[in-house]
Amino acid sequence: MWEKSVDINLISEIRAKTTVYLGVGAIGKITDIAQELSKKGINKAVVVTGKSSHIKTGAWDKVKHALDAANIAYTLYSKVTPNPTVDQVDEAAHLARAFGAQAVIAIGGGSPIDAAKSVAILLEYTDKTARDIYEFKFTPVKAAPIVAINLTHGTGTEVDRFAVVSIPEKEYKPAIAYDCIYPLYAIDDPALMTMLPVDQTIYVTIDAVNHVVEAATTTVNNPFAISLARETIKLVAEYLPRAKQDPQDLQARYFLLYASLIAGISFDNGLLHFTHALEHPLSGVRPELAHGKGLGILLPAVVKQIYPAKGAILADILAPIIPGLTGAENESPKVYTALKNWLKSMGISARLADEGFTAGDIDKLVKLAFETPSLKTLLDLAPVPATPEVVRNIYSDAL
Rank of each mutant, 00 (worst) to 15 (best):
T126L: 13
K128P: 03
T129K: 10
R131V: 12
Y134R: 11
Y134D: 02
Y134L: 12
T139R: 15
K142I: 09
K142T: 15
A143K: 05
P145R: 08
V147C: 08
L151T: 14
T152N: 05
T152M: 05
H153F: 14
G156R: 03
G156L: 05
V159Y: 04
D160C: 13
F162N: 10
F162A: 11
A163W: 00
V164C: 12
V165Y: 02
V165C: 05
S166A: 15
P168F: 10
Y172P: 03
Y172M: 11
D179H: 13
C180G: 04
C180E: 04
C180W: 00
P183V: 06
P183Q: 06
P183D: 02
L184W: 14
Y185N: 08
Y185C: 08
A186F: 08
I187W: 01
I187S: 01
T194W: 10
T194C: 13
M195T: 15
P197T: 11
D199F: 11
D199W: 08
T205R: 03
A208L: 02
V209D: 02
V209H: 01
N210C: 15
V212L: 04
V213L: 06
V213P: 00
E214W: 02
E214N: 03
E214D: 07
E214S: 05
A215P: 00
T217F: 03
T219D: 14
T219K: 14
F224P: 01
S227K: 09
A229K: 04
E231D: 14
T232V: 04
T232K: 01
K234H: 13
L235D: 02
E238H: 09
P241S: 08
P241W: 01
P247F: 05
P247D: 03
Q251I: 13
Q251D: 09
A252P: 00
Y254T: 06
Y254P: 00
L256M: 12
Y258C: 09
Y258Q: 08
